[in-house]
Design a protein around this nucleic acid. Structure first.
Length: 361
DNA sequence: AATTCGGGGAA
DNA sequence: TTCCCAGAATT
């Protein structure tokens, strides 16, 4: 029999019973009955923002080994954090991670706050992460709403309002189901269910502990939910990227602006990323002063690098330029690095693609 | 309310 | 290819 409005008690009891039997074992998850370290919970939750469990695993271990406590992390240079974060994406998370560590270490004596308003005041912690830390690390009864839980709730109630407009309604429905006790286990249970059972496509309703209460399951239109606003098409931007190499083999790196796309990360110099087609000779002339061209030796091209960001595609044409000396004034803001040492620098995946395209792996 | 932030795995 | 992922900050 379908219960279109599940009661809080029966619903959460079902979910928690399922969790006791089927909880996944994850690197940041403590054994049953053991309160996890809030530092670990915080670190994992920041990394897990818009990032899959499988991707986060190795990074979480690496960070914990490099910085065992929030004090260690707060004492580290931001560049070390960015270098360790390289490849994870959304680099504002790494910058805010460091900011947050400094605040917790300096202003909170290294102790993470357990209440929502204090958590929300910290850099990089928004509604989801604040609720998750409060519930998982401190056993507070807070309502956690991530992408998994949005999907579960929108199917339970067949919510036809498209996301993100439906966020408020979904949060309200979710709050009505949140138990007073074991809210952390309950939240993690729902996220496990979302990842393993209530999947975006072809959900495994046969094994779902909430199927009896699910309106979408009753109607058989689970995949229609959650309804989402249509997404925009991504334009393609293009540029030349320069592999400037000295006779001794060192290559020029420089640091990007502190904010914005790939903020604070290292890069190979490039022309502006534009939607128009790139004329190579004209781009070379605009990037290097004409009178400088005579100092360059042979110029060759690497394989085209394709990369997709959140809101545009990028095509970078690598240009290998052999440079006679490092002291050139127009290259003064860079850093000459041996490719063997690139691992010591905060190179985002886009730039490691450039390395591969030029060195032909 | 919309846009800006990466990158990878699954279908 | 397209979609989505334990979202937050900015405009």
């Amino acid at each position: 029999m379908i219960d279109p409005v599940p009661s809080k008690k029966s619903f959460s009891t079902n979910i928690l019973d399922w969790y006791d039997l089927h909880a996944r074992s994850l690197p940041w998850r403590s054994p049953p009955g053991v309160r996890p370290d809030p530092y670990h919970v915080w670190l994992s939750e920041i990394m897990l923002q818009q990032t899959t469990v499988a991707t986060v695993g190795p990074y979480f271990e690496k960070f914990l080994k490099a910085w065992p406590t929030v004090h260690h992390m707060a004492s580290a240079p931001l560049d070390d954090i960015l270098t360790a974060w390289a490849g994870l994406g959304y680099y504002a998370r790494a910058r805010n991670l460091h900011k947050c560590a400094v605040v917790v270490s300096r202003d909170f004596g290294g102790v993470f706050p357990d209440d929502l308003p204090s958590l929300l005041s910290l850099p990089g912690i928004g509604p989801y992460t604040a609720a998750a830390i409060a519930a998982i690390a401190f056993d507070r009864s807070s309502t956690v709403v991530d992408g998994n839980i949005e999907r579960i709730i929108s199917r339970l109630y067949r919510i036809n309002t498209p996301l993100p407009a439906a966020k408020k309604e979904i949060t309200k429905k979710a709050a009505a189901l949140t138990p007073e006790k074991r809210a952390g286990d309950y939240a993690q249970a729902l996220m496990d269910i979302g990842a393993v059972i209530c999947t975006p496509r072809r959900p495994n309703c046969g094994t779902c502990p909430a199927a009896h209460a699910c309106a979408a399951f009753a109607k058989g239109d689970m995949e229609k939910y959650p309804v989402k606003a249509p997404k925009k098409v991504k334009p393609t931007r293009r540029a030349l990227v320069f592999w400037l190499q000295l006779p001794d083999g060192r290559v020029l790196l420089r640091r990007r602006a502190e904010t914005g796309l790939l903020g604070g990360m290292m890069e190979f110099p490039s022309t502006d990323w534009v939607e128009e087609a790139v004329e190579i000779e004209a781009a070379l002339d605009s990037f290097f002063a004409d009178e400088r061209r005579e100092f360059f030796g042979e110029i060759t091209a690497g394989d085209l690098v394709r990369h997709t960001f959140t809101h545009f595609h990028l095509e970078l044409q690598p240009v290998v330029v052999h440079v006679d000396e490092p002291g050139r004034p127009d290259l003064a803001d860079g850093l000459w690095v041996r490719p063997a040492d690139f691992g010591n620098y905060a190179l985002p995946t886009l730039m490691t693609k450039v390395v591969r395209a030029v060195t032909d792996r």
